[in-house]
């Protein structure tokens, strides 16, 4: 009884964590915060996978001499190892984009940037100004 309640508690919190991460990604306007949110989101998904792989009373999936030992499920571990590295790759790329955006726009707030873009877009479309001045000169 207690154990099943604990299990449901675990699942629920993991789901809530995921959604907090997702909210940071889609609800916040700061580009860095979005990446942080993505990290949280992904880490929580990893937790979900690892939770699936747990067997009560088992040991980590590293063989020892005894033949009757119960091992936890290694497959989710392998998948998550892959996913962690993929996650860090995404983070690195996102951060580098944020750095470039900041050095071009001087801001990493979505509202600022879309305002700047809108002005520029309007200028270009309506007045057909040459847009890559640094090129032509």
């Amino acid at each position: 009884m207690i154990s099943s309640a604990m299990g449901i508690w675990n699942y629920c919190i993991v789901f809530i964590l995921m959604m907090i991460g997702l909210f940071l990604v889609i609800g916040r306007k700061n580009f860095l915060k979005k990446i942080v949110g993505l990290t949280i989101f992904q880490t929580s998904v990893f937790l979900l996978y690892i939770t699936f792989g747990k067997i009560t009373g088992a040991t980590p999936p590293i063989l020892n001499e005894a033949l009757d030992t119960v091992y936890s499920n290694p497959l989710p571990h392998v998948l998550i190892l892959t996913a962690i590295v993929v996650g860090v790759a995404t983070t690195a790329l996102g951060l580098s984009l944020v750095l470039r955006i900041n050095s071009e726009y001087g801001s990493i707030e979505e509202d600022d940037i879309s305002a700047q873009d809108l002005v520029e877009y309007h200028d270009e479309i309506e007045t057909s100004k040459e847009f890559n001045t640094k090129f032509i000169k």
Partner: peptide
């Protein structure tokens, strides 16, 4: 690969010279 990518990432980030702004 991983070690070299990580070093390259660190060098790229830490040695970033911002152009405009900031």
């Amino acid at each position: 690969t991983v070690s070299n990518v990580m070093i390259a990432l660190f060098n790229a980030f830490a040695g970033f010279k911002s152009g405009k702004g900031n």
